[in-house]
Simulated assay, not measured.
Amino acid sequence: MTSWVATSVALALCITVASAVDVWNMEQLEQAKKGKDPVIRVRNINVPAGRTLDFQGLDGRTIEFHGRVTFGYKEWSGHLIIIKGKNINIKGMPGHLIDGEGHRWWDKCGGNCGKKKPFMIYTQLENSYVDGLRIKNTPAWCFAINQCSNVHYSNIDIDNRDGHTKGGHNTDGFDVHKSRNIRIYNSKVNNQDDCLAINSGWDIVFENNVCEGGHGIAVAVGGYDVNEAKNILIKNCKVIKNNIGIRVKTLLNGKGIVDGVPFDNVELKDIFETGIVIIGNYLNSGPREKPTGGIPIKNLNIRNVRGNVFPNGTNVLVNVAPGSPFGWIWDFNVWGGKPNKNCLGVPSTIADPCAK
């Protein structure tokens, strides 16, 4: 009996070892794609300049990050990492780091001018999980969540705090486009742009996250091939030392819809410019002209959004086309900044939020 047990344990260990493959360079990754090992362990890879760490064709497999992943320097507009497929499990293992060494690209211009800067991670996933990744110093934008469905992003740490003094810009945490049933939770972002920017999507939850140093949490609709954001829940989050707390911004002269956006239990702390921003005249170069109502903002529910704005800032700004918003419910307490007496388009169903 003892011999049989020992043999069984040994066999099980062999099967476990054989079920994973270690990848130390790009060539080994290409070989691993051709194999059938259900687990690929990425270990201390240095990706050559101008090349992408490409995880495609890996449906049903697990990708584990071990050690440090780094990238050669090149000015280009590609992606440092691409992950596409179905039923993929992405896991960050203890002690790992995906290090973009973004200071090599940072020039205070971001994606608008200066050096060409690559995206950090492009994901196009279905029925998948991304968990536990530690990411540092992205050249510009971090996560592109594009045409994804049924995907969880959890326990992710995006640390771009060095960019505050070294010229980081447009270092968005999570950018969501044309995606459905997305959950982003238990994560941290320290950056120099939006913590979350939802350009379009349906049934998206952003919960139990901490945003520090950037431009706040944004639903930003307009200017894309799909301009629709519906059923977006922002819940139990903290926004610390950002220039904006939360905002919904729609493109000037754009067409589309924003419908069903609850901000529920969001704590704002030490906001520099404006606590809550709702505008219908957004342009990339900054808001201007009178707001247009081609992207109406419906069922905007602000519940228990609270915290302080610095004295030179503004508590609340609303500038939307009169008659375009519908079904707003607001319950908030933002203090410390100046009231804005020039708000436009506030629906008659709620008390003027700008008077506080």
Rank of each mutant, 00 (worst) to 15 (best):
T16G: 06
A32D: 02
K36F: 05
D37S: 14
N44F: 07
N46C: 04
G50F: 10
D59Y: 07
R61Y: 07
T62Q: 15
Y73K: 14
E75D: 10
W76M: 06
W76F: 14
S77L: 12
I83M: 15
K84R: 14
K84G: 00
K86H: 08
I88N: 05
K91L: 15
L97G: 00
L97E: 09
L97P: 03
G102M: 11
D107N: 10
Q124G: 13
K136R: 15
F143M: 06
I145L: 06
Q147N: 13
H152Q: 02
D159G: 11
R161C: 04
K166P: 00
K166Y: 04
G167H: 02
G173I: 03
H177L: 13
R180Q: 12
R180W: 03
N191Q: 11
I198L: 13
V205C: 02
V210W: 01
I217K: 00
A218I: 09
V219F: 04
V219Y: 07
V226C: 09
L233S: 07
I234E: 01
K238Q: 01
N242V: 01
I244P: 01
R247Q: 14
R247P: 02
R247E: 08
G256L: 02
G256S: 00
G260A: 07
G260V: 05
P262G: 06
E267T: 03
D270F: 01
D270P: 00
D270V: 01
E273Q: 09
G275W: 02
G275Y: 03
I276D: 06
V277S: 09
G280T: 08
N281C: 11
S285M: 07
G286S: 06
R288A: 09
K290G: 01
V309R: 06
G313F: 06
G313K: 03
V316K: 07
V318S: 08
S324F: 02
S324W: 00
W328F: 12
K338H: 07
N340K: 09
L344P: 00
L344F: 05
P347R: 07
P353I: 11
